[in-house]
């Protein structure tokens, strides 16, 4: 971990040059890409967008990237801006995901994910249900029993109301034949306070994306009871909800979208770019270091997935009284 003076100077130079376009050597697929992130720098969508940039540049797929971050309210501040300002722009892409679907529904916004052109789904993350390590609840069956007895006595911590964590709790209660509105859902702003409330034993259980809890699970401070994806997370020995007799599947996905009004060949070109990007060694490397699950899906398969996800989300948000 030693630093040479040369590295220092390079980095110091890069401080100023980080946002400047770098010349590409081979002929790239796109001269330039306008990357729109409907979230502030530093979050999950921003991380995905920067990773795409990194993979594309390393493989010389794209000459230059131009970024715009417009954060706020699960993407509902940025999305209308992308739709209005980038109409028919062939080289504009936006990163978004399941969070935006719920946000659009609860905001009752006229502009939703249906207003942009789906290009591809890239990554997916399972949710996980945990209890504090010293909790009297030791197994998923015991948690189910507690929910069946009275969900109001089982406070569950997660992210903001109506987000993916809350929706998962709603789906679980519904599967148990309870009214989702009965859930004692304790919303926390951001992963930090939620983590602290769970390991401090302030709540009975917690729900979040797996990576949010991963280190606490490894460190033995949280006990994972179930994951919410179709299948188990590779390398993680936690059974899915389905395996434990509950027919609920949910995952937090992230993908890329094109501007409204682009022509079929322009859409195909973007699909080609993303498809080439996901095959690069650089992208695979990023997936490994970030522990993102590859869930690449494009074309009509992705469209079908989206439609189903929107319908499911509307349903459960109605049950929760949020739509």
């Amino acid at each position: 971990m030693k630093t040479t003076r040369r590295e220092f100077l390079l980095t110091a130079g890069a401080l100023g040059a980080a946002t400047l376009p770098w010349p590409a050597l081979a002929a790239p697929l796109f001269e330039s890409i306008f990357m729109f992130v409907p979230a502030a720098p530093g979050g999950g969508w921003d991380g995905t967008a920067r990773a795409i940039e990194q993979a594309c540049k390393t493989a010389d797929l794209v000459g230059a990237f131009q970024f715009e971050n417009v954060g706020g309210s699960g993407g509902m501040v940025g999305l209308p801006r992308f739709v209005n300002q980038r109409k028919a722009q062939a080289n504009a892409i936006m990163v978004a995901g399941s969070v935006m679907i719920g946000a659009a529904i609860s905001a009752k916004s006229p502009i939703g994910i249906q207003n942009v052109v789906p290009i591809a789904k890239l990554t997916e993350e399972s949710g996980v249900i945990v209890v504090p390590n010293n909790s009297p609840i030791k197994s998923f069956a015991e948690l189910v029993a507690a929910f069946k007895a009275d969900p109001r006595k089982v406070p569950v911590a997660g992210g903001s109301a109506g987000g993916t964590d809350h929706i998962l709790l709603g789906l679980m209660l519904k599967a148990l034949g309870r009214n989702p509105k009965e859930g004692a859902y304790v919303a926390f702003a951001g992963g930090g306070p939620a983590n602290a409330a769970i390991i401090g034993g302030q709540v009975a259980a917690g729900i979040s994306g797996y990576s949010e809890f991963e280190e606490q699970i490894k460190g033995g401070r949280m006990r994972p009871l179930a994951v919410s994806g179709e299948a188990r997370i590779p390398g993680v020995n936690v059974p899915t909800l389905r395996e434990q007799g509950m027919n609920v599947v949910s995952a937090n996905w992230r993908g890329v979208f094109g501007a409204p009004g682009i022509q079929a060949p322009q859409r195909a070109a973007l699909e080609h770019l993303v498809s080439a990007m996901k095959d690069t060694a650089g992208w695979k490397q990023i997936l490994t270091t970030r522990r993102w699950a590859d869930s690449y899906q494009a074309g009509s398969a992705f469209e079908k997935y989206l439609a189903q996800d929107v319908a499911d989300t509307v349903g459960v948000m109605k049950d929760l009284g949020l739509a």
């Binding site: 971990m1 030693k2 630093t3 590295e7 220092f8 390079l10 980095t11 890069a14 401080l15 980080a18 502030a40 720098p41 530093g42 921003d46 920067r50 940039e53 990194q54």
Partner: peptide, 15 residues
Amino acid sequence: IALLLPLTFKAPATA
């Protein structure tokens, strides 16, 4: 720091 995050692709962690 958020604006400098892309540098983490290039520079060593300690630095």
